[in-house]
Design a protein around this nucleic acid. Structure first.
Length: 105
DNA sequence: CGAATGACCAAGC
DNA sequence: GGCTTGGCCATTC
């Protein structure tokens, strides 16, 4: 909250732009925001950022994340994504099928 | 302003 | 094949 940084706005904008049933990786989001290599920053923003952002659509390069900080439970994210039509392959999801690439403006 | 944080990524062992 | 190390960058306190 209380962030005026363009990053957070950009990041959140990208995350919100992710259509239902798709996900993006932290590194990709950072790259789209114009800050390649700032994957960690996404995590920071997610932690201190707005809760209105569907962070559950954001996953790491492995197709999963450190599930354990979700208010719903250890796998709350997985549950949310499944509700959007994403089928998990065990503990992770198929990035090759669900990875979303935002339109380049 | 300085130090700490963070939900990562890639490479190394 | 799974765990550890280092680096990366901006935000937050």
């Amino acid at each position: 909250m209380s962030l005026d940084s363009v990053f957070k706005q950009q990041v959140q904008k990208v995350v919100v732009a992710i259509p239902k049933g798709y996900v993006m990786t932290y590194g990709q989001i950072a790259a789209v925001c114009g800050h390649v290599g700032a994957a960690r920053v996404i995590g920071q923003i997610a932690h201190y950022g707005d809760v209105e952002v569907p962070w559950h659509r954001v996953v790491n390069a492995k197709g999963m994340m450190a599930s354990g900080f979700w208010p719903d439970g250890p796998s709350g994210q997985k549950r949310l994504l499944e509700s959007e039509g994403i089928v998990f392959d065990g503990d992770k999801l198929n990035l090759g099928t669900y990875l979303w690439t935002p339109p380049i403006k």
